[in-house]
Structures are given as structure tokens and as C-alpha cells.
């Protein structure tokens, strides 16, 4: 065994001996060293990242995948701003216990329009990938104002200021436009109406709401999320986003049903 191994390793060792000689000469040239480092370090990333764009099955094809409404996107931006990803993942792994606790595992297509993705790397709090419709708006508002009001054991920070802060909507067309540049299929009409649609989504009894449903689909939640009918707040936006998590496509549920049969 030992013999076999030694024979097997011999070429390695011989190569290395030769390499050491070359190296001895190379290490006198800073540019050679630079080029060597760039090449050696370049390979890995290229081989792992480039094919993710060329292999078709990487991202599932679905027809019912919808984009975030302006209000939801604004909420997502708040989620980013508050760095909720430091405690919450949005990625249910393909493991039995995760599927049983949180629901069908996350699919690549579900974060297709997520710039950036918010899969997270730490679960101080639970996964949020299938959060949509799991709680009431009212619960979210109370939970965000003071998590320990509803979950006494929680260590999540209070976000009471969200309910006091008006949502800035003027920049929404610009934000949607930028998202279109990076590949989210927003139409001109969606971009032009972005600010109005953000308001409309929280005004079910006004006609502005119709435009939202028309542009983003029947399933869009049109509600006054934060229970302050006369104001559009950051709380509205964040809750609207939380309520749509996992709801952009029905594919995960279809896969789940097929798998169980």
C-alpha cells in the first residue's frame, strides 16, 4: 500500500521539484508573480460562475412569476436598509426538517428578480421565505413595533419608527428603472405610475387601486397594511413586502404536490 502510494505520488513530487526550480527563477520578477497570481486565482471563479448563465436548467422556467409592485419593492429596500438578512434567511434548503418546518424548499426562480438576493447566512430568527399570508398585517405591525409584545421570548429589535415614518415614493420610478436595467421586466407604464401605485396599493376603496391590480395582477394584496388609513408609511411598505414573500409564483407548491404523490 505504502509502496503503491509512493509510486503514485512520485510524479507529483517530481513535478514539484521541477516547479521549485522554475519558481526560484520566477520569484525574481514581480510582474511574473502578478500574472501567475491572476491566472491561478482566476480559474475557480470563472468555472463556477460563468456556467450559471449558460446552463438552462439553473433557473426554472415558469409562466406565473410576477414582479414586485412598487410598494413591495419599497418594502424590500427597507428590509435591505435595516439589514434584516443579518438574522433572517430567505432560503429553505433541501433538507427534510426545513421543508417540514418552513414549507416547500426554495427554488432558484423565486429570487430571479431579487437584486440582490437575500438568502442570508444566519438564522437568529426563523426563515422568512414562505412568510406571505402566514400572519395578519396587524400582527406584523405589532410585532415590528415591539416583537416582545407578541412573542415574549423574542430578541428581535423594535422597529416602531417605521410606523411613524412616511414612505418616500418620489424615487420609485427611478428605482424601478434601475431594476429594469439589470433585468426585471417592468413596463414603461409600471415605471411611470410607480409612485401612484405605491399609494394605490394601500387604498382599496379608491380608484388608484384598480391600476395596481391591472398592472400587477388580481392576486396583488391591496390593503391598508398599517392600520393608519390616512398615511402611507414605511410600515405599509415593509408589511406589503413581507406578505408577498413566497407568493410570486405557485411553482413550489406544484412541485411539492408532485413530489408527495
Amino acid at each position: 500500500m505504502n509502496r503503491l502510494f509512493r509510486t503514485l505520488l512520485k510524479p507529483f513530487s517530481a513535478f514539484f521539484e521541477g516547479h521549485a526550480r522554475t519558481h526560484y527563477r520566477m520569484e525574481r520578477h514581480s510582474i511574473a508573480l502578478t500574472i501567475g497570481i491572476i491566472i491561478a486565482a482566476g480559474v475557480g471563479g470563472f468555472v463556477e460562475i460563468a456556467p450559471l448563465f449558460t446552463i438552462d436548467e439553473t433557473v426554472e422556467k415558469v409562466s406565473d412569476m410576477r414582479v414586485y409592485t412598487p410598494l413591495e419593492q419599497a418594502g424590500r429596500d427597507i428590509y435591505v436598509r435595516e439589514a434584516c438578512y443579518t438574522c433572517h434567511s430567505q432560503m429553505i434548503r433541501t433538507l427534510r426538517d426545513e421543508v417540514e418546518r418552513y414549507g416547500p424548499y426554495s427554488l432558484a426562480v423565486e429570487s430571479k428578480y431579487d437584486h440582490p438576493m437575500l438568502w442570508g447566512s444566519k438564522r437568529t430568527g426563523p426563515d422568512l421565505a414562505r412568510l406571505g399570508d402566514k400572519f395578519s398585517d396587524d400582527w406584523h405591525v405589532r410585532h415590528l413595533i415591539d416583537p416582545r409584545d407578541v412573542v415574549p421570548e423574542s430578541v428581535m429589535p423594535q422597529y416602531a419608527f417605521l410606523a411613524r415614518t412616511s414612505l418616500e415614493t418620489a424615487s420609485l420610478p427611478g428605482r424601478l428603472e434601475a431594476l429594469r436595467t439589470v433585468g426585471v421586466p417592468y413596463t414603461d407604464e409600471m415605471i411611470a405610475n410607480a409612485s401612484l401605485d405605491a399609494l394605490g396599493q394601500t387604498r382599496p376603496d379608491r380608484e388608484q387601486a384598480d391600476g395596481v391590480v391591472e398592472r400587477y395582477g388580481e392576486a396583488t394584496h391591496v390593503r391598508n397594511f398599517d392600520d393608519q388609513p390616512d398615511r402611507l408609511t414605511e410600515m405599509d411598505a415593509l408589511v406589503a413586502y413581507l406578505q408577498v414573500l413566497g407568493k410570486l409564483t405557485t411553482l413550489p407548491d406544484q412541485i411539492k404536490i408532485v413530489a408527495e404523490e
Binding site: 440582490p116 428603472e177 434601475a178 436595467t181 439589470v182
Partner: peptide, 22 residues
Amino acid sequence: VPASFFGAKSYSLFSGVQDAMT
């Protein structure tokens, strides 16, 4: 891509899986 050159907010070029891997 910045949402505006007059503001801090930007959106990463990649999304989803490609963004995660990068």
C-alpha cells in the same frame, strides 16, 4: 446600477442564484 446618481441606493447587477454565487 445606481437608482440615481444623486442618491445612495443601487441594485446589484446580478440576481438570485448568480448573485448568490458571486
